[in-house]
Write a protein that binds this DNA or RNA. Sequence first.
DNA 1: CATGAATGAGAATTCATTCAT
DNA 2: TATGAATGAATTCTCATTCAT
Lengths: 196, 196, 196, 196
Amino acid sequence: MAMSKKEAILNAAIDLFAEKGFSATATSAIAKTAGVAEGLIFHYFQSKNGILAHILIDMLGNYIEGAKNEISSNRTGLEAIENFILFHFRFSKKKSKEVVVLTRDFPTDLLQPGSVYREEITARLNLSLNLVKNCLKKGQKDGSIQKVPIEKTAFIIQGMLIGALHLKLKMPNTPEMSLIATEILNFCRRSLAAKS
Amino acid sequence: MAMSKKEAILNAAIDLFAEKGFSATATSAIAKTAGVAEGLIFHYFQSKNGILAHILIDMLGNYIEGAKNEISSNRTGLEAIENFILFHFRFSKKKSKEVVVLTRDFPTDLLQPGSVYREEITARLNLSLNLVKNCLKKGQKDGSIQKVPIEKTAFIIQGMLIGALHLKLKMPNTPEMSLIATEILNFCRRSLAAKS
Amino acid sequence: MAMSKKEAILNAAIDLFAEKGFSATATSAIAKTAGVAEGLIFHYFQSKNGILAHILIDMLGNYIEGAKNEISSNRTGLEAIENFILFHFRFSKKKSKEVVVLTRDFPTDLLQPGSVYREEITARLNLSLNLVKNCLKKGQKDGSIQKVPIEKTAFIIQGMLIGALHLKLKMPNTPEMSLIATEILNFCRRSLAAKS
Amino acid sequence: MAMSKKEAILNAAIDLFAEKGFSATATSAIAKTAGVAEGLIFHYFQSKNGILAHILIDMLGNYIEGAKNEISSNRTGLEAIENFILFHFRFSKKKSKEVVVLTRDFPTDLLQPGSVYREEITARLNLSLNLVKNCLKKGQKDGSIQKVPIEKTAFIIQGMLIGALHLKLKMPNTPEMSLIATEILNFCRRSLAAKS
DNA sequence: CATGAATGAGAATTCATTCAT
DNA sequence: TATGAATGAATTCTCATTCAT
């Protein structure tokens, strides 16, 4: 069951974007790596940006789907948040290349007004934030989480998770990601858990 | 007190990098905006990367210097952390364009082995992380902060601050940054403050 | 009575060539507009040039046939010339898109030695010129047209008709074509009619 | 007195456009012929269209200037028209390459709304038409030209001159241009001259 | 310090055409 | 007859950088 040429292009693009960055990767290099004619890239993805958008949208879709599963079956909202955090880092490890692409090259121009990809991307970003919000709400209902402003706290948690990936990318000589993950768990639990 | 041509170049570059991104900004555009000949850019900064490095190093220097001042005269370590956080967001507001440049375009290739700018930049990043560590250590000595692993917690806090800027850049329809700042303060205080 | 796919391609090509010009029109655009697969174009017309040649040859054929009818049943040669002129502008109005294609994109390379279409096209151009010549000859025989050099005068008249279309295409803010037509009629009559 | 590189580019472009047509000429070929780096073309002319526009505007400028001189010192309006016609063909012979470019490649898209060249070109086309009108007006005042509608007749004459060039380009096996020129002179004189 | 003409390598994209199905 | 994936050469244009002045 051979990989389709479209998939080959995507895989090559992910590899190269992760390794050298989006703008330092030429479409000719993608074609060469994928073993296809350069023109085929544009047949499938319209533009170089189109490849990136496809990768990002795909990945955000997976992220949201995975996170949704993860938090669906928890007894308490706090547990849900904890599992969200753990999922975030599991996902980042599993899809490490894609995450590097997203982290370093999330292209602001894909989000600019007029971009055809804008809506699809922002919709997914909002979905993710909503998942966190829902966990927090649940936790406040079930008493596992203390009284915190939902929207801002969700923003902070999501930002913290993203920020860890960014900082790690720029400072590799820092504690291993799995240790950071556990510690973020502690950090958030201390901040959120209802006082006994 | 006219602006020197060197400054004009830097200002033009900051404006354009913030607006359109580093790689979407041509040196010819910088020259035009600055009102100088294109060649002069290379006289002062050697290369396009050189401009970016100059901006980033400058800014990181200011950040560290400012943060250092901010945390030097605090009674407790917890207060120091709190003031660090507040400073971070004050700085981000004051130098908003530079921060956008850093946030969106921090160029991984400036950090790659072989880059002449690498050491200068990583040194500054480490300095910043050390400031946070020092606050935490102080707080554990003076009893204002509970027992937490210093290194990982410093990483988390710094990451959280950076992450907030990133997330805001991608999701402008989120709570105002100043509100986020206050809430991050609360979030961290709850997580760090020694239990009474 | 559905349009055949071949006709759909031709219609799409005429529309697009007239609107954007031959070389600015991609075969993919023709296929899309026609609602057929791109490959089908090459099945029917061999090449992009082939479509253009087909359109032009078709149109020249219609032009000649129409003109021939028009001038066949006239009492005098002068009348024949007059009807030829009127026909020219009637045809240009009826087949306005095709005429625009011919006027703006008559492709010199279709006429270059070695082109498979060369003979077919030049033959038709000569036929048209011959029709004018015949009218003039007739007019000189029947005394309705004064003594003029046949060949050069035919060239001038045919050129005048073509030139009017060209000039109109480039200068739309000029008198309406139907008024020009009438006036060309007068212009030629004054120049050609035998003196009474 | 070496030719400047800008001039070299223009000359190369005129040669190649005349020989192979605008869209069949690559900018790389122009650069090669001119003996300059391809990038320099864009430094001076912004785009491939820019070169063409420059050539056309230049040539129309020369045409108008030349025609203006030609018709300024004539006793009668009819003489002025005659000299305009003769000038047209003298100019076409002298600037034969440029005229071929204009005749075959006058690019409708340079005239489309939104084109930066539009106004400059249409202004010149109008100027030329106005020269003819002025001759006709003068001729009606001084009695050398019979009563004809000025605007339409000017359009017809200008169109006739242009049409002759077009037809010749497509049908090289026709009478020599200088003979056509003389005969157009006769044709128009017969049509315009006041009856004695 | 300052200019801007000139370079040339490289980039993204286009596109007519082919061909297996 | 009809499709559309696939090709690959060609094309316009960009851009960081150099250098003579």
